[in-house]
Amino acid sequence: MSVFPSFRLPACLRARRIELCRWRHALLAVLIALIPAPLTLAADDTGIATIDWTLAETLVALDAPPAGVAQIDAYHDWVGKPAMPDEVVDLGLRSQPNLERLSELAPSRILISPMFSRLKPKLSRIAKVETLDFYTGQRPLWDQLVEMTHQLGDIAARETAADTLVENTEDQLERQRNTLSASRDPLLMIQLMDARHARVFGDHSLLQAVTERLGLENGWQEPTNAWGFSLVGIEDLMTIDARLVVIKPLPVGVEERLANSGLWQRLPSVKRGDVIWLDPVWTFGGLPSAQRFANLLVEALEDTDRA
């Protein structure tokens, strides 16, 4: 990351059409443009761009799809639903969105999460950048996500849609909590990295925020990082007597390996044969992902109840 202080270009270079500046002057100006100048925003308001998938999925859920999102193909692979409409422009990598394309798109605002704060100086030369706080590991995640959804509603002028999304989500979780029978085994929600390592979701994670609201107990009480998971070896799960919830997709080849793994086969939940395999969910998502996870989990729990 560049770590020198930044200055802005003269205002005449910032306007979309610069007939006033002859190109020779422009070149000269670029070469000597070290003078700080105030920022002028592009006049035509073409919408919101974001490089964060969680913000993107929430915006789509508010029926205010962004004008540009980073890595749309990978978004569909990993976040899945809600799907990005076709007209959304792909901005390139999340870690390094394409600046030329972004400035051509000329959005009115660019939304980021704190993990992209290093990009702020660059992005703020294209449009106003707003940082929405969530997954900071400091306050309860659910409150952050609810707050973020309301903020997005304000920014996208979809205040009522935001209210509805929050209400719907909380209602749904409340309803599902009531359908589940009272006493249940604690859960151990993991995502397998390979046949010997897994991410276990705990405090600060979306998954735990959802299970809490469903009245389910999380078997993983160890410290987690800001994204709500601990990276552990399978052996660390041995001593925890809880029902395994494995979030797919499994890395290639892992299924065969688990079948031959002495340790995996002796995990309490595997021995009992009550492991739940869940379809992919974006584990760092917002309220839409929370709804999806809750639906999948409750459905799976009820399925096994019936069986």
Binding site: F4, R94, F229, F284
Partner: peptide, 29 residues
């Protein structure tokens, strides 16, 4: 990188020799 922190991605991008974050002042310097 192994820790799986989502910020790792930016570290990868910068580690591999990126001119992305440079601004004009820096570049001239």
């Amino acid at each position: 990188l192994a820790g799986g922190d989502p910020r790792g991605q930016q570290v990868v991008a910068w580690l591999s020799g990126s001119t992305y974050y440079v601004d004009l002042t820096t570049a001239t310097t």
